[in-house]
């Protein structure tokens, strides 16, 4: 199998809450290897530490214990080069046009003349934003704003793309189409993709492997391999294995979700 692109060993995250007292044990201890070039998805109950996990890999947060490494080098609160992030919330800069948003991080990159413009042009075309180059984010739908954020990440040509519930705010049809776009990007760029989602079918449809996380403190309960071919699209939902894979995710998750909403698994409401 291919080499590990990201490795986490014994990673734990504890938030101290200054003023309020006490600590929140958000994550871990957790071991994980992301293979180079794979599409990896994470599902788990809300509040289980998925975003925290992403921030540790992105270098936006530091682990309380354990080690996170990207391409063999440890990440210690430093933002590594070659990592792109698409956040859960709308991260468009509202005072910039679509193209200026997309070119934002390229401002710092030292590129050959014309390279910047051509990368932005390509990203606009790839994300279907043609005709909206001079629009401001407020004039776009939520789905298009999220595409602007994806385009802003793409122009940097990251080797690792982290996506935190990027389609959370979108309707079902748009989600499916955006999912296909992300699949296409993944194939074209050859990047490793790490996708957090709360939609189990989305995880099954898109990923090579899916990690199911426990309720807080988040640990990995199981990793499900889908075994899809690299050339794939949303039509995998017609595959006989699709239902079985999604059912497996739900089976593992059901108990955990019960815990996170404060009910013991399996006991009916008001039971006996």
């Amino acid at each position: 199998m291919s080499v590990a692109h990201v490795t986490l060993r014994g990673v734990t995250k504890v938030f101290s809450r200054p003023g309020k007292g006490g600590e929140v044990h958000a994550l871990g201890p957790l071991d994980l290897d992301l293979r180079s070039g794979e599409f990896f998805a994470v599902v788990g109950p809300s509040g289980c530490g998925k975003s925290t996990l992403l921030e540790l890999i992105a270098g936006l947060a530091t682990a309380s214990a354990g080690e996170v490494a990207f391409e063999g080098r440890p990440i210690a609160g430093e933002i590594p080069d070659g990592v792109g992030v698409v956040f859960q919330e709308d991260a468009c800069f509202p005072w910039l046009t679509v193209v200026d948003n997309i070119a934002f991080s390229l401002r710092k990159a030292r590129l050959a003349p014309g390279e910047r413009e051509s990368r932005v042009r390509d990203a606009v075309a790839m994300m279907g934003l043609g005709g909206f180059e001079r629009s401001y984010p407020a004039q776009l739908s939520g789905g298009m704003r999220q595409r602007v954020c994806i385009a802003r990440t793409l122009v940097m040509k990251p080797r690792l793309i982290l996506l935190d519930e990027p389609f959370g705010a979108l309707d079902q049809q748009t989600r499916l189409l955006m999912g296909e776009e992300v699949l296409r990007l993944w194939r074209q760029t050859g990047a490793t993709v790490f996708l957090i989602t709360h939609a189990l079918d989305e995880a099954t449809m898109l990923a090579d492997r899916i990690a199911v996380m426990s309720a807080r403190p988040g640990r990995i309960l199981e990793i499900v391999e889908t075994g899809w071919p690299r050339e794939r699209d949303s039509r995998v939902v017609e595959d006989a294995r699709f239902g079985a894979l999604t059912a497996r995710l739900w089976q593992v998750l059901r108990q955990e979700s019960m815990k996170s909403i404060g009910r013991p698994g399996g006991v009916p409401e008001g039971g006996a």
């Binding site: 992030v85 956040f87 859960q88 991260a91 800069f93 991080s105 710092k108």
Partner: peptide, 20 residues
């Protein structure tokens, strides 16, 4: 989230102030 995006873009503190 905009501050996080700025960090991912590896902006210096002065750039964060003037550009974000």
């Amino acid at each position: 989230v905009l501050l996080k995006a700025a960090r991912i873009g590896r902006l210096t503190p002065v750039e964060v102030a003037t550009q974000v």
